[in-house]
Simulated assay, not measured.
Amino acid sequence: MTPLNDNNGLEVPFYHSKLGTEWQRQELLKRFTGESRPKLDHIICTNAFGMGLDVPDVRLVIHWQQPSSVEDYLQEFGRAGRDGAQSVAVIFKEEVRGGGRDVGLLRYMAEKTSFRAATDESSARRILAHRTQQIADLRNLLEGDGCYRDRLVSYFEGPKAGGRQGLGRAILNAVFSARPSTRRFRYCCDHCAAMSPRLESLPEHVTAVFGKHR
Rank of each mutant, 00 (worst) to 15 (best):
S69H: 04
E95A: 14
D102P: 09
T207V: 00
L4P: 07
D72L: 08
A85M: 06
A208N: 03
G211I: 05
Q165N: 08
G81Y: 01
P203A: 01
E94A: 11
I171P: 10
G34P: 15
E11Q: 12
D83P: 11
T182A: 11
C147L: 01
F14K: 08
A118G: 15
L53R: 09
K93V: 14
A161M: 11
K212M: 07
S177R: 07
V90A: 10
V61L: 06
I171T: 09
F77E: 03
E11I: 11
S68G: 05
E143T: 10
E94F: 06
G99P: 15
T46H: 09
P197Y: 01
G78H: 02
L29Q: 15
A208P: 04
T46A: 07
A110Q: 02
Y155E: 02
L28Y: 07
R101A: 10
P180R: 07
V90P: 14
R183V: 13
P56F: 05
D54N: 14
Q65L: 05
R151D: 01
E22S: 10
E121S: 12
L199E: 00
C192V: 04
T113C: 07
D54I: 14
A170E: 12
F92Q: 11
A118S: 15
F77R: 05
G100Q: 06
H42G: 12
F49W: 01
D57S: 00
Q165D: 06
T119Y: 01
D6W: 01
D83R: 10
A170M: 13
M51P: 09
A194W: 04
D6F: 01
P197H: 05
A193N: 05
A124K: 13
S68H: 02
C45V: 15
R59G: 02
Q24C: 03
D190I: 12
R125M: 14
A110M: 00
M1T: 15
R131Y: 11
L128H: 14
L60I: 07
P56T: 06
C45A: 13
G34W: 10
A208L: 04
Y73S: 01
L74Q: 00
L28G: 09
W64Q: 07
S17I: 08
L152A: 05
H130A: 15
L106F: 06
Q26G: 14
A193S: 11
T2R: 10
N140A: 13
V88K: 09
D120P: 05
L167T: 08
T119V: 05
L28K: 12
A124T: 13
R97S: 08
Q66S: 10
L74W: 03
